[in-house]
Design a protein around this nucleic acid. Structure first.
Length: 108
DNA sequence: TCTGTGACCGCGG
DNA sequence: ACCGCGGCCACAG
């Protein structure tokens, strides 16, 4: 079983609408731990793909992708986001136009 | 208990 | 706009 913070973070990620993104910090805040952005990355890293959680909708606060450029993961993430119609500005997401604001999770 | 770690954040130069 | 740096904190061993 996932740890409590982890499952909450994943629940938040699952709630991100198609065509929008959230930053790691945003997800952490919505999950109830505003400064645990790194933990969100930790949680997503453990998924390693075998899941239906839309991990590709989580990017850095700057709009840049977290994964190193040219890795298969980064390419997949970019392809999926483009397919969803997310606006780009060079090599990063135009965070100002597709950022999703989530309300905090109700039952912690 | 204590320590190291990381798909981060945001400020200052 | 691009670094570098210190701070963060849940989690594993």
């Amino acid at each position: 079983m996932p740890s409590p913070f982890r499952s909450r973070a994943l629940a938040v990620v699952s709630s991100i609408p198609v065509g929008t993104v959230m930053s790691y910090g945003d997800v952490a805040a919505a999950a109830g731990a505003p400064r645990a952005a790194r933990q969100v990355g930790y949680a997503l890293a453990d998924l390693a793909g075998h899941t239906d959680v839309p991990w590709h909708r989580v990017v850095r606060a700057s709009g840049a992708l977290a994964l190193a450029e040219s890795t298969t993961g980064a390419l997949l993430q970019r392809a999926r986001l483009e397919a969803e119609g997310v606006p780009w500005r060079g090599d990063r997401v135009d965070i100002g136009r597709c950022r999703h604001v989530a309300e905090p999770l109700k039952s912690p």
